[in-house]
Design a protein around this nucleic acid. Structure first.
Length: 585
RNA sequence: CGGGGCGUAGCGCAGUUUGGCUAGCGCGCCUGCCUUGGGAGCAGGAGGUCGGAGGUUCAAAUCCUCUCGCCCCGACCA
């Protein structure tokens, strides 16, 4: 067994590292995954994993597997190719739309490449689960997923093919679901901690998938695509898509300003207005015309605030809204884009954010070319159809808890937990029979982890100018043994001996037997990011020593030949144990 | 889908504006010598339908038309 392992030599390992940065890569993880020979691109958003990258993926998958099993999950493997009928049953064949990879077989039957597996799992369970005695049930798989993203980007971060762990829970009631939900929540905390990631669970919007409660696990990173806010004094943390806002405090001045028209040639944006009137954006009243379903609405916000389209959609009771086109704007406001205001709108509801109501002498569009109104007082000059929170939370806002202030951060969504309820079990007819012989729909939850995205997120958090610094738990190999010159007999035999003994001791080691100059081997070691490097060279050997160097900390020291194996084995074993010993709540 | 940009050797690029020698350079690759503590040096060599198709021309990487792919910004997004 060991002898087989020992055949792995760097001279034969497929690890074509790149000196130069591929032009297509923008962010660190993408760049480094290409440079360190973890993967290669096949098409936009589609990648092949090379031996080193695949080992990392397997490490992550193994951690996920262990924690899912420990939480009571049962692993299955569901198909990638899925029949259209199933998706018609839930209505998602159309809802998912363009993002679904669709295909047709030789009999003209329609299929898709699974973007997710609620339908398949629920269909499986409806056929096989009958009784409350079989519940709760948690099924999971680690499988490729396919989404024809409009714009794949950042390497594996937003790919069209990606690896995901998805678990589905089936409970008899809400209480059971709640239990499953928090079991998964805590398992996720353990998984990401074990992967060496700093993550933050945040409240999120449940989006098209539906359901009541959901948290996203965000790996904090500047390269992240998601914006989050969190409170400085309480536990509140949320995706800005969801984050609630308190109205910033405003003391009424009791000031009454008359409403006047002001000629504002070519002044359209909030920035223009600030300059023109020499007043802050917080005294501007911004009016955006939106279309949602058959409705046209005016979203009225303070000039320094941004609209949260999800909240707006909810406020008017539709699934999504989009900014109205120029024609609609003209019909509603009677003016071209840039001069909309809340006063005198035609055939359109006015939805106003509470922050606007505190403005006393605001500046708003005049619904006519080159005209703005000054001295606008909401309530006096226009009456909203609805006053409701429709703005995007931003750093500096008061936290809903009333005490703290919201801080901003960016994150990579590496996991999400959802309470689905009966959203899929009902349309698919997945039911069970309870003690009273009553047939009820299963109460479901679903829980995803982006495996490949997690790999990228780890690199975003763990790298420096020289390359990746893998946490020991996910490193492709623990130790890289580098003889300064493999041709030198003493160095070669010493390095080989250490390699053999470490491998026998269960330490994952590679030996760099390439006939390269030391600089090349050191650079590759740093780039690939092995946690530990053992250098076997003439300097140390003269005193019967080799050099130890830890990648992440730069810690460096000499150790004698007869201690090196036990020392390394000991430190590696301890480091692994530490990574596994994460706090449980 | 809208806006911008790019396709020339495995990677990074020059050449295209103003058509004209055998299409270049650096890195990598192969052979040999030499060298071995942070991406060495010398010598020799291989590797290209210049993304593809059509057109203009005596002549096209270069000009025109169409097409495909890729990247960035936006919209979009379990």
């Amino acid at each position: 067994m060991i002898s087989g392992v020992l055949k792995l030599r760097m001279s034969k390992l497929l690890m074509p590292t790149l000196r130069e940065v591929p032009a297509e890569a923008e962010i660190a993880s993408h760049r480094l995954m290409l440079r360190a020979a973890m993967m290669r691109k096949v098409a936009a958003g589609i990648y092949s994993y090379l031996p080193l990258g695949f080992r990392v993926l397997q490490k992550i998958m193994q951690i996920v597997r262990e924690e899912m099993d420990a939480a009571g999950g049962q692993e299955v493997l569901l198909p990638i190719v899925q029949p259209a009928e199933l998706w018609h049953e839930t209505g998602r064949w159309d809802d998912y739309g363009e993002e679904m990879f669709k295909l047709i077989d030789r009999h003209e039957r329609q299929f898709c490449l699974g973007p997710t597996h609620e339908e398949i799992t629920t269909a499986l369970v409806r056929n096989e689960v009958r009784s409350y005695r079989q519940l709760p049930l948690m099924l999971y798989q680690i499988q490729n997923k396919y989404r024809d993203e409009i714009r794949p980007r950042f390497g594996v971060m937003r790919g069209r093919e990606f690896i995901m762990k998805d678990l589905y829970s089936f409970d008899r009631d809400e209480e059971g679901l709640d239990k499953s939900y928090w079991t998964m929540f805590h398992a996720y905390e353990r998984i990401f901690a074990r992967c060496g990631l700093t993550t933050r669970p945040v409240e999120a919007d449940s989006g098209a998938i539906g359901g009541d409660q959901t948290h996203e696990f965000m790996a904090l990173a500047d390269a992240g695509e998601a914006e989050i806010v969190y409170c400085s004094s309480c536990d509140y943390a949320a995706n800005v898509e969801k984050a609630e806002c308190l109205t910033p405090p405003a003391e009424p001045t009791g000031r009454e300003e008359p409403l006047v028209e002001v000629a504002t040639p070519d002044v359209r944006t909030i920035e223009d207005l600030e300059k023109f009137f020499n007043r802050p954006a917080s005294e501007m009243i911004k009016t955006l015309i939106y279309r949602g379903g058959d409705q046209v609405v005016a979203a009225v916000l303070r000039g320094d605030h941004e609209v949260n389209e999800i909240k707006l959609a909810r406020a008017i009771g539709c699934l999504e809204v989009e900014l109205a086109d120029d024609k609609t704007i003209e019909e509603v406001t009677g003016a071209p884009r840039g001069f909309a205001g809340p006063i005198g709108l035609k055939h359109c509801k006015i939805i106003t954010d509470p922050a606007v109501m505190a403005i006393e002498g605001g500046i708003a569009g005049g619904n006519a070319v080159d005209v703005h109104l000054q001295g606008v007082k909401p309530g006096r000059d226009f009456v909203p159809d609805k006053v409701v929170d429709i703005r995007k939370a931003q750093p500096g806002d008061p936290c809903p808890c009333g005490k703290g202030v919201l801080q901003g951060a960016r994150g990579i969504e590496v996991g999400q937990v959802f309470k689905l309820g009966t959203k899929y079990s009902e349309p698919l007819g997945a039911t069970f029979t309870d003690e009273d012989g009553v047939e009820r729909p299963l109460i479901m939850g679903c829980y995803g982890i982006g495996i490949s995205r997690t790999m990228a997120a780890i690199i975003e958090q763990c790298h420096d100018d020289d390359g990746i610094c893998w946490p020991i738990s996910v490193a492709p190999y623990h130790v890289d043994i580098v003889p300064v010159s493999y041709r030198d007999e003493q160095q070669r035999t010493t390095a080989e001996r250490i390699y053999r003994e470490l491998t026998k001791a269960g330490v994952e080691a590679v030996i760099d037997d390439r006939d390269e100059r030391p600089g090349v081997k050191f650079k590759d070691a740093d780039l690939i990011g092995f946690p530990l490097r053992i250098t076997v060279g003439p300097r140390g050997l003269a005193d019967g020593q080799v050099e130890i160097r830890w990648r992440a900390t730069g810690e460096e020291y000499l150790i004698s030949l007869n201690e090196v194996v036990s020392h390394v084995q000991d430190r590696i074993t301890r480091a692994i144990a530490e990574s596994e010993c994460v706090r449980t709540q």
